[in-house]
């Protein structure tokens, strides 16, 4: 088994062997369900679209991703097992990518838990499958980016709580910027809009898989992972 897969498998076994991950997933699905039922009822709206639920799923991912990723490296560091990992024939990149892959898989499981919403909508009326597929592709991209930010935050501290707050703060940044877009100076608005999660999720939920959106999520993921690797290398070199 490749080293990255070994790290990811170990991480997944730890995550799903604890009640916390299951509680987080159940909380994630409950929150989306409640928001979809009471805040933005698809049935009452009468529109054959998953756009409303997609917004709630994206918003809830902002909470779930840091919660899933916060322990990935911070806990290893706190318990001292990161030193143990360092003695194994594993590079910092392999450790970080393995942790990130595990977080992405966990978030994908969370997204899969929302699929029954889409299935129910298909059962109710004529739903265009393209935007639903596009929406899930976009959410997977968002999950990947958020997981990378979460792993980077987790690599920066020993405290899981601090890692969660740091990841939440960084992840919320592009969302806040998106919300404040009307206040951005006109000459910057096109550039800034591309840096917001809303821009990309909205495009993908329309059923258009835009190269720019995929590049954005990939870029955030790569930078997040690189920062996490830097943190580990920095500590290793600082010792």
């Amino acid at each position: 088994m490749p080293p990255v897969a070994t790290v990811a498998r170990r991480e997944l076994l730890i995550l799903f062997g604890q009640p916390v991950a299951w509680l987080a997933l159940a909380g994630f699905v409950s929150l989306i369900g409640l928001l979809t039922l009471w805040k933005d009822d698809v049935l009452a709206g009468g529109v054959a679209s998953m756009r409303g639920p997609f917004w709630w799923i994206a918003s809830c991912l902002l909470l779930l991703a840091p919660a899933i990723a916060m322990r990935s490296i911070a806990e290893e560091r706190r318990s001292g097992s990161l030193h143990l990992l360092a003695t194994l024939p594993l590079t910092a990149v392999e450790i970080v990518v393995g942790k990130w892959a595990a977080a992405v898989v966990t978030l994908a499981v969370g997204l899969a838990c929302t699929v029954p919403l889409a299935v129910a909508l298909f059962a109710l009326g004529p739903v265009d499958p393209g935007p639903v597929v596009g929406g899930y592709v976009g959410l997977l991209g968002l999950a990947s980016a958020l997981a990378a930010v979460g792993v980077a935050a987790s690599a920066a501290t020993e405290s899981q709580v601090l890692a969660f707050l740091m990841a939440l703060g960084v992840s919320a940044g592009p969302v806040v910027v998106g919300a404040a877009l009307p206040l951005v100076a006109p000459e910057w608005v096109s550039t800034v809009a591309v840096l917001t999660f809303q821009f990309h999720v909205e495009h993908l939920a329309r059923g258009v898989v835009d190269l720019r959106s995929m590049a954005f999520f990939l870029a955030v993921s790569l930078v997040g992972l690189r920062v996490a690797v830097l943190q580990i290398e920095h500590r290793r070199l600082a010792r």
Binding site: P131, V133, H203, G207, V208, D210, R212
Partner: peptide, 9 residues
């Protein structure tokens, strides 16, 4: 290049 894949029906 504004490359995009339109998945709508």
């Amino acid at each position: 290049e504004n490359a995009a894949l339109d998945l709508t029906e």
